[in-house]
Computed example of a mutant assay.
Amino acid sequence: MAGNDACSIYVFDAYGTLFDVHAAVRQHADALGPNSALLSEIWRSKQLEYSWVRALMGRYVDFWTLTEEALDFAFSKVPDANKSTRQDLLAAYHKLAAYGEVRMVLDSLKARGAQLAILSNGSPAMLEAAVAGNGLEDLFDHVLSVDATRTFKTKSETYDLVTTAFRCFPDAVSFQSSNRWDIAGATAYGFNTVWINRTGQPDEYRDLAPLAQFKDLNGLLNL
């Protein structure tokens, strides 16, 4: 990553990369019932689908609204799930737990002199709550929400937020995401990309390959 060596900018997707998108459901799994994991998977997949469709239509609503709508859809698809947990789930999602290695890896990168940022579909209030709830607010030079562009990743204007904030070219950036579609978009944009493949998913978008793939963020420390 020659460009990244020169600029030392590391940008992270938030949900699924830094913050565990299934933590909210696990927290309330007993109250939800035996199909809590299924509900969590549907919730996440619909949340993403809604962002892609909204971006294609040019009909933006913020990510928190999509999160609420996706949860309501998940409840409709899993009728035996306890709907009285809805507000508890949303409150937990607002302050999702970070993955176990996140703080150590970010501290290590910062100690090397790296500049750090988040680029996320999440709304500003969601990101503020998640970052503060995990005590990470001292680590990031920028927390960037696509809300400023009124669309969602993988639209190129969302990645423009990074190069504008840091006043750099795309190849000066190392971009990390657990979402393969996000890695494809960021690669097409010109970032150096690292796929954090936490769940061992098969590769896709092979014409837009990441420079590296790791099971968690610890791999960044060996690049």
Results as ranks from 00 to 15, higher is better:
residue 222 N to E: 15
residue 158 T to M: 02
residue 54 R to A: 14
residue 77 K to N: 11
residue 132 A to E: 08
residue 93 Y to E: 02
residue 96 L to V: 11
residue 96 L to E: 06
residue 194 V to A: 13
residue 82 N to R: 06
residue 146 V to A: 09
residue 41 E to C: 12
residue 179 N to E: 09
residue 7 C to Q: 13
residue 161 L to R: 10
residue 135 G to K: 01
residue 45 S to D: 12
residue 102 V to P: 00
residue 180 R to N: 10
residue 46 K to G: 08
residue 140 F to W: 08
residue 133 G to S: 08
residue 204 E to K: 11
residue 104 M to G: 14
residue 9 I to M: 09
residue 150 R to L: 11
residue 48 L to T: 13
residue 143 V to I: 12
residue 203 D to W: 01
residue 43 W to G: 11
residue 93 Y to L: 12
residue 165 A to H: 04
residue 184 A to W: 07
residue 151 T to P: 00
residue 97 A to Y: 01
residue 122 G to N: 03
residue 182 D to Q: 05
residue 199 T to C: 07
residue 213 Q to V: 15
residue 109 L to A: 12
residue 83 K to V: 15
residue 172 A to K: 12
residue 214 F to S: 04
residue 61 V to P: 00
residue 221 L to V: 14
residue 32 L to Y: 14
residue 145 S to Q: 05
residue 200 G to N: 07
residue 44 R to P: 03
residue 109 L to N: 07
residue 201 Q to P: 00
residue 28 H to Y: 07
residue 153 K to L: 09
residue 10 Y to W: 14
residue 79 P to T: 05
residue 80 D to F: 04
residue 192 N to P: 00
residue 190 G to E: 01
residue 217 L to Q: 08
residue 59 R to E: 14
residue 204 E to T: 11
residue 32 L to T: 13
residue 215 K to A: 15
residue 72 D to P: 06
residue 20 D to Q: 11
residue 31 A to M: 07
